[in-house]
Design a protein around this nucleic acid. Structure first.
Length: 97
DNA sequence: TGCATGACTTTCC
DNA sequence: TGGAAAGCCATGC
């Protein structure tokens, strides 16, 4: 796997502001990944020191196994949550800066 | 070279 | 939004 790619993904996740989230697909598109799964794979292995809780899938669902943890942080940041899901319609963010 | 696996997505109902 | 099914892509053995 390309380390540079992983680093790019992590940098994008780090740029996600509080109260906003990004989908794996969005990140994959932004970093030019072949598919969203690659982003997830990188996150699982290199997503330790980054706000991974701000990364959700297309359903607005957070990382499996860390849902409570992620939801707690997101809620603390003021992220528009809807029960156990994230309101992508308003929370979805894109690194336009 | 080939098949199985995974922090996913899209389409359909 | 939600569940089921099929598709995509890179990695690992």
């Amino acid at each position: 796997m390309n380390e540079d790619f992983a680093e790019t993904v992590l940098s994008v996740v780090e740029r996600i502001p509080p109260g906003r989230v990004m989908t794996y697909g969005a990140i994959a598109e932004y970093v030019g990944a072949g598919g969203p799964r690659q982003v997830g794979a990188v996150m699982s292995h290199y997503g330790g020191p980054v706000p991974w809780h701000r990364v959700v899938n297309a359903s607005g669902r957070v990382v499996p196994g860390h849902e409570q943890e992620a939801l707690r942080r997101l809620r603390n940041e003021g992220t528009p949550l809807r029960g156990d899901r994230v309101n992508l319609k308003v929370a979805l963010w894109w690194p336009e800066d």
